[in-house]
């Protein structure tokens, strides 16, 4: 109950923020909500299932290019393009999961890193359609769905809010279901979970596919809402960032990824005003979090104050 209240409260608060925030922060929050949806999907795999992927940018990019190329070359409307992006991410997740889940631990990290690298390079190689690093812009009628222009600031915010809320509540529901509890059991002790009769390989594969689909939904939404599709979003950096956001906010908590994304976005935003070496902040944060606060913000709150936090 408290958990549902807290998360519905956050959803309500973000909706209320639409009406009061000044333009700059309104725009930032729209972006943060899309990226937080990405982080929430990442957390499902990393925080709840205990699988550390270093290649989630490939799923984000699958969604982004699935939607972006669909709009550009198949003239899909944004609604269908979103579905195409999610399908692309889920399929890639299935393929990568089937292979990568034969490994564990450090090997799993490197295998996902390599698949993501191959995806990134593949996007560059297909420059004729993807326009490589330069990317391409979606504009005008390409971003209109049901008469709504996703380029409009208000509609963009509300669409981002709808996506984030759906992902947040989906994950909140999932982790309270038996299937979600099994993921935690796998994270804590896979061998024991298997000998309780759970097909851990199948559960992990489902987690990879769902996590990839959520990441792809965020990638597709990013392309449609912000009108830009580029290979940067497939680079290693976009695999590291969700890890950083989740570590900061609290791995294995439902609300943590949003908190981490929000805080880190403003930190990097501030730093980039001061120096071109703004990723220094990300590096320092990764080292300090690993050393001193591996539980992250929400994890510390759960440990000290609110053990009920899901």
């Amino acid at each position: 109950m408290r958990a549902a209240g807290l998360h519905l409260g956050l959803v309500g608060l973000l909706l209320a923020a639409h009406f009061v925030l000044p333009a700059y922060h309104h725009g930032v929050l729209a972006r943060v909500m899309v990226l937080a949806a990405y982080a929430t999907g990442y957390n499902l795999l990393f925080g709840y299932t205990g699988l550390l992927s270093l290649g989630h940018a490939m799923f984000f990019a699958a969604g982004m290019y699935g939607a972006g190329l669909g709009v550009r070359f198949l003239a899909l409307d944004p609604g269908l393009a979103l579905l195409a992006g999610v399908a692309a991410g889920a399929l890639l997740g299935l393929a990568v999961g089937l292979l990568a889940l034969r490994t564990a631990g450090v090997a799993f990290m490197i295998v996902t890193l390599m698949f993501a690298q191959a995806t990134h390079l593949g996007i560059l190689l297909a420059g004729r359609w993807t326009r490589g690093d330069e990317g391409f812009v979606l504009q005008g009628p390409e971003r209109v769905v049901l008469g709504l222009d996703l380029g409009d600031a208000a509609i963009r915010y509300l669409a981002a809010w709808a996506l984030f809320s759906a992902v947040l509540l989906l994950v909140l529901r999932l982790v309270s279901l038996p299937a979600g509890r099994v993921l935690v059991a796998i994270r804590e002790n896979e061998e024991r979970a298997r000998l309780l009769g759970y097909d851990t390989r199948a559960h992990k594969l489902r987690a990879v596919v769902l996590s990839a689909a959520i990441a792809a939904a965020a990638g597709a939404a990013y392309a449609l809402l912000f009108g830009y599709v580029g290979a940067t979003f497939a680079s290693v950096q976009y695999s590291i960032l969700p890890l950083l956001w989740v570590l900061l906010g609290g791995a294995g908590t439902v609300i943590g990824p949003f908190l981490g994304t929000l805080l880190m976005f403003y930190l990097i935003d501030t730093a980039s005003g001061l120096t071109p070496a703004y990723m220094l902040v990300a590096g320092l944060a990764l080292v300090l979090l690993t050393l001193f606060a591996p539980q992250g913000l929400a994890g510390e709150v759960r440990r000290r104050l609110a053990p009920w936090l899901p």
Binding site: V184, E188, N189, E191, R192, R194, L195, D199
Partner: peptide
């Protein structure tokens, strides 16, 4: 596989205690 055997009615308790420590 092991999980399918468990589903058919076998159970196993580990020699070295293997519970979910943090649950």
């Amino acid at each position: 596989p092991a999980h399918a055997r468990v589903r058919r009615g076998m159970a196993y308790s580990f020699q070295i205690t293997s519970v979910f420590q943090r649950l």
